[in-house]
Design a binder for these strands. Structure first.
Length: 113
DNA sequence: CCAGTGACGGCTA
DNA sequence: TTAGCCGCCACTG
């Protein structure tokens, strides 16, 4: 098994988890990273989401940082696409920040376990 | 090959 | 409590 293959596996893992996020719910990069065993490497999760751009099936808009801030909104087609999408699903967003993030937080290592 | 950057997170002052 | 620094890992210049 080459290391390149392992990297691909990690990316696929991220996509699988993100696709499992229920509507109206959100999670953080660190939570996904920890669930995948890449604890501490939340940046890799973010990089995987960037690579998920061509994959519109991936609800990357449901993934935010640990404070619930839509830091990745700038990477979408439009700077407000992420916020619009979240509000469309019932997630209230204020100033690029998820409202009641603590209640809407979805932990893969807890819900999927 | 070396240095800088980035959809982050945790620790220390 | 709030603000700032360092650490992870991969990619670009």
């Amino acid at each position: 098994m080459s290391q390149e293959n392992k990297k691909e596996n990690f990316f696929q893992n991220v996509y699988e988890v993100v696709k499992l996020i229920p509507e109206g719910r959100v999670t953080s990069y660190g939570a996904i990273a920890s669930y995948l065993g890449a604890k501490g490497s939340a940046r890799m999760v973010g990089w995987a989401l960037i690579a998920s751009h061509p994959m519109t099936q991936i609800p990357a808009h449901r993934v935010v940082n640990r404070v619930g801030m839509l830091t990745g909104s700038q990477h979408f087609d439009a700077p407000n696409a992420m916020q619009e999408r979240l509000e469309q699903e019932g997630v209230q967003v204020k100033d690029n920040q998820v409202v009641e993030f603590d209640k809407l937080f979805w932990d893969p290592g807890k819900e999927l376990l």
